[in-house]
Design a protein around this nucleic acid. Structure first.
Lengths: 343, 343
DNA sequence: AAAAAGTGTGCAAACGTTTGTCTAAAATGA
DNA sequence: TCATTTTAGACAAACGTTTGCACACTTTTT
């Protein structure tokens, strides 16, 4: 009943030629005569021949698998990045093995072990919020499995990475607000431990400098990204001697919390107090009041680039470890005006 | 520099024993003496031996890959389901190949082809909203690749499926509202083409019957799940002779649209008009006004069950196609009271 | 006319593992 | 003590493919 899939061997036998000829013919190897090639391809089609991938993987000593470890698939940023990864990988004949760390370092460690013995050819990793030590990634180096970190990248030397430069977008965001006439602009930034927090700060300050304005540290408050933290930050900003007329928030979640709080204080959103945020998540489609603009981080693009780099690395393995060149790609963030919020 | 991973062969040679002995020893085969076994395991550990998965896959003629095709990863329902799938698959030594159809039938067809020649052992599929014909799935039957459909299942005979029974949850939801004293309960249901729409309707009616109330068809309106459609449905319900004091909405998105509209009409949410919805998405954490209760569909559990069934199917292949038994698992939905909304 | 180059194909090894069958030695039974 | 069973391990085939090398034949060059 169950007919086994056709093999190269069967084709060879049926045509009374050698296996190698069949293999070469199917790969359009130049040394095979046209007639034989046609006969072979013809029969292959008739028999519905499809190469046995497991055999090829084995033979080539590769799995054509790319492992991906990221914190949380349900975050829109990551699920979009995954789309970029998948599309690129599929296009280049690789397959994606996905796993979520759920922002748990322990899980991350386990996944690393799992991935390694699944024999992935390469890895794409976005580290956990809380990952403090990076030694568990060393096994990949030892096994000669290239790793490209994306978005959340560890502070290590000699790694490949793709990340988004937040400074540019922040600069644009603040410039945009300045152009709109705002002179007192607050910022609710993230925890100082995050690299991205520093970039936002820098962009903010640079935009002020460029416009010959003085940087007022009391207008820049850090927060832990929770709702409570955001409310605290808002209270601090709103009670400032110079009360801001616009606020840049670390991400859309913070924006949501901040806007909600502002409304509870009967502040007219984007009139009395204008908001600009980051990420541009689908979330804002469902908010009643949304930031007037968002700094886009291009997750799909980041996924694409990281995958491209990884596959290039796989196709051109370095012999000499010392001569290894490291890719550190930066995607520029970019301000996007939110049409829904035009008032 | 790059040291190749150790193989069974090397271990054999180093210990001057046969390959088969090493293989069996590592598998705790009873016919291997204790001392040899220990020696082998010892050396294997020293050499950091790890079985070459590609070789094993090839040898066993299996890929230990499970293909998953679903509409949209960024929908919380699916990303949660994927977690269930991954966890179960990993536990049982399978690997997950993920792909999104983005609710596009054409993409779905392409993915099917892709998956088949990636030589997956089995498939988990949640079909596209728009999939009208199911013949592209036939290739799996022909290649003897078992398929388990989940959540969105095609209306076909002789398939394996895991889905959530919406009737139970709907029954509970309406009963809950009745117990709270509501007597005029509206429902914004989905398009009649969806199976789940029928189940909701049935649950709604059954709850009324059970409470000796008459079913009033004018209180049950269908909609296309868009914001415009929802507003239309709301207008219809609110202008009804018997104006509802509570509304059950098809899902959280519809709930959001409906609540937003109600607020635009200055209706006090969950006082003047009470909402109950489905899904319980993270979305509602970010809504200012949320339904008082949601019908939970247990996506994680569905993913788990579907994967378990699939792997069972893989481990116990049927010889005789005619004798195939089909699994059709139903997960009961369940009402969950939303604490945030308690007023 | 002989040598060289080109063309088309076959042979066989290799990749790492599992597993059915075979054998030698040791243990058991009478 | 010899026959039988048990134990511990070896041998070799098989899985499907790719690829370096060899070979025969034909064509071109000298």
């Amino acid at each position: 009943m169950v007919k086994k899939p056709a093999t190269i061997k069967e084709i060879a036998k049926a045509l009374n030629i050698s296996i190698s000829t069949v293999s070469r013919a199917l790969h359009d190897h130049p040394s095979i005569g046209l007639v034989t090639k046609m006969r072979i391809k013809q029969l292959a089609k008739e028999l519905n021949y499809e190469p046995n991938q497991t055999a090829i993987f084995f033979q080539k000593g590769k799995s054509y698998n790319i492992g991906v470890i990221l914190p949380e698939l349900s975050e829109a940023f990551f699920s979009t990045a995954v789309s970029g990864i998948e599309d690129t990988a599929n296009k280049r004949n690789y397959t994606v093995l996905l796993a979520q760390s759920h922002d748990n370092e322990e899980t991350e460690r386990k996944l690393v072990a799992k991935m390694k013995n699944q024999r992935v050819d390469g890895m794409l990793i976005s580290v956990t919020k809380n990952t403090s030590s990076y030694d568990h990634f060393e096994v990949f180096r030892k096994s000669n499995i290239p790793v490209v970190f994306f978005d959340r990248i560890p502070s290590l030397q000699n790694i490949h990475s793709v990340a988004c430069n937040m400074e540019t977008g922040t600069f644009e965001a603040v410039s945009f607000l300045l152009k709109r006439g705002h002179r007192v602009i607050g910022m609710i930034n993230g925890p100082t431990t995050l690299y991205a927090t520093g970039e936002r700060r820098e962009g903010y300050i640079q935009a002020l400098i460029k416009n010959r304005l003085k940087f007022d540290p009391s207008l820049l408050v850090n927060c832990d990204l929770t709702e409570a933290g955001t409310i605290g930050a808002m209270q601090e900003l709103l009670s400032n001697k110079r009360k801001p007329t616009a606020i840049v928030t670390f991400n859309d979640y913070v924006a949501l919390f901040a806007i909600r709080y502002a409304r509870s204080q009967d502040i007219a959103i984007n009139e009395e107090l204008t908001f600009v945020s980051y990420a541009n998540l689908p979330l804002i489609n469902y908010m009643d009041y949304v930031p007037v603009a968002s700094v886009e981080q291009f997750p799909y693009l980041q996924g694409q680039k990281a995958t491209d780099i990884l596959i290039d690395l796989l196709n051109n393995p370095v012999k000499d470890d010392a001569k290894q060149a490291y890719y550190n790609i930066t995607v520029e963030s970019q301000l996007v005006i939110n049409e829904k919020a035009t008032i």
